Simulated assay, not measured.
Amino acid sequence: MAQIINLPTFSDERGSLTVIEKLLPFEIKRIYYIYNAKEKRGGHRHLKTTQALVCPKGSCEIFINNGNSEQTVLLDSPEKCLILSPEDWHSMDKFTSDCVLLVLASEFFDKADYIEEEYPRD
């Protein structure tokens, strides 16, 4: 199931610096970000890919269904990182107008790794 990890942040009079280092349960092979989102994104799970999601700016909601339970996570801080396992069917929604959603992935893009069918819902 998905989990939140808190990213170490160092702040002083110059500002804040948040670090993603030696925290992720995978080697990063792909990095992308979503912005100017006007509608729901995602709507899939993976065969192999683990992902880490961070909102460095703005906020959005992530709906997760792993086949056994469902949850919705609000990403509203650059210090909050959501780890999605391959079995976590997920969709992203309710993007603020200034939202930037950064995604770090364990695998390179492969369309065959995507499973779009959602688990049955209660």
Rank of each mutant, 00 (worst) to 15 (best):
K38D: 10
Y33H: 14
D76F: 07
D93F: 08
A105E: 08
M1F: 00
R121A: 12
P56E: 00
I4G: 04
I5F: 00
A37K: 09
L84F: 00
S59C: 01
K40W: 02
P120M: 05
E116H: 11
C99S: 02
E70W: 04
Q3G: 13
K38S: 12
E70K: 14
D113R: 00
A112Q: 15
T96R: 00
P78D: 06
M92G: 08
K48Y: 10
Y114C: 07
G43W: 04
L47I: 14
L75T: 08
S97N: 12
L74I: 13
K48W: 07
F26Y: 01
Y119D: 07
C81M: 06
A52H: 04
L53C: 11
N68V: 07
K111N: 13
V54M: 03
S69A: 14
I115T: 06
E117S: 14
I62S: 05
S91N: 02
R14Q: 07
K38R: 15
S11R: 13
Q71H: 08
P120D: 00
G15E: 10
F10K: 15
Q51G: 01
A52S: 05
K80L: 05
T18D: 00
N36M: 09
T50W: 00
S97D: 12
S91C: 11
Y33E: 07
T96G: 02
D110F: 01
L17C: 15
K94M: 02
D98M: 05
L17N: 15
K38V: 12
S97A: 11
L53T: 10
T9Q: 15
E118F: 02
I31K: 12
W89Y: 07
E107Y: 02
C60Y: 06
A2M: 10
E107T: 09
V100G: 01
S106Q: 11
A112T: 15
A105R: 08
R45S: 11
V100C: 05
S11L: 06
E61H: 11
N68K: 15
S59Q: 13
G43N: 05
P8R: 12
E27V: 10
P86G: 02
H90I: 02
D76K: 13
L7I: 03
V103I: 11
N36S: 14
R14W: 02
P120N: 03
L24C: 10
D76V: 06
A105C: 10
L101E: 02
T49W: 03
S91P: 06
G67D: 01
P86I: 04
V54L: 06
F109K: 10
G43F: 00
W89R: 09
Y35K: 15
